[in-house]
């Protein structure tokens, strides 16, 4: 466990230092497309469904206790912004991005391409991990915004058309504070930095044949998802303890 976190921090350090290499602009952009753009449908779809589920539950609770959706609605809206949008977006994005990163790097590793890179005077970490790291950091907050918008919109529509109540009252921002947004943003940044590192570490370490790539993907995805949960909790505790 400690060894793993140590290896991840070292990889993170090397990847950050790799940003000094000037020729990575194009690789960065193509990673923004493949880590970000290609994840948008999954996040939109998943969070829209989740928004509907949340309203269904809120509706059940409202009928039981308060009698009106307008009372619990804003609380749920804050919950979506502060907690669900960052966490579920991160988990969805983590599973897709981590799977792709560890699969790609893992199959490069077992095909000796990393060693071919070393002999071509290129550092595989700079070449492969750095663009993915920065692309993911740049993209995760945007994905979180997309996820939050998708969840809120679908919640609003569900309330309006299925429960025939005022959808706008559900998404009222009366409880949303600056602290909520800062908390959500921090979570997104942390997940964005962690996911590619966890996945890349497993990919780079793959040795052997196709089986090694499969193992790298399995372990990489699990560690990325687990890391997101842990980071989410730690950040939640931090913001809770400073009272934001």
């Amino acid at each position: 466990m400690i060894a793993l976190v140590g290896a991840q921090s070292r990889l993170f350090g090397r990847a950050v230092l790799g940003a000094r290499e000037p020729r990575l602009g194009r690789a960065f952009l193509s990673q923004v497309a493949s880590l970000g753009g290609a994840t948008v449908p999954l996040v939109t779809f998943g969070m829209a469904f989740f928004g509907m589920v949340m309203t269904t539950i809120a509706w059940a609770q409202a009928r039981k206790y308060t009698g009106s959706l307008a009372v619990v609605g804003p609380a749920y809206f804050e919950l979506i912004l502060r907690e669900f949008a960052p966490l579920l977006t991160a988990l969805l994005a983590a599973s897709r991005q981590a799977a792709f990163v560890s699969a790609e790097l893992g199959s490069m590793a077992v095909n000796e391409q990393l060693e071919a890179m070393e002999l071509s005077a290129a550092d595989p970490v700079t070449e492969l991990v750095t663009p993915r790291l920065f692309a993911s950091i740049a993209v995760m907050p945007l994905l979180t915004i997309i996820g939050a918008v998708a969840a809120s919109l679908s919640a609003m529509l569900t309330v309006t058309f299925f429960f025939h109540e005022d959808g706008l009252s559900f998404v009222s921002p009366q409880y949303v504070t600056f602290g909520d947004l800062a908390c959500a943003f921090t979570k997104a940044l942390a997940a964005g930095a962690y996911v590619p590192i966890a996945a890349a570490l497993r990919g780079l370490r793959a040795r052997g044949g196709a089986g090694a790539v499969g193992d790298a993907v399995t372990v990489g995805v699990v560690e990325a998802c687990m890391g997101c949960l842990v980071l989410d909790f730690l950040i939640a505790v931090f913001f809770h303890s400073v009272g934001a």
Binding site: N111, E112, Q113, E115, A116, M117, L119
Partner: peptide
């Protein structure tokens, strides 16, 4: 040093 790899290792 130049090396030709067993699996070609082309990018």
């Amino acid at each position: 040093l130049g090396m030709i790899f067993q699996s070609d290792a082309l990018f």
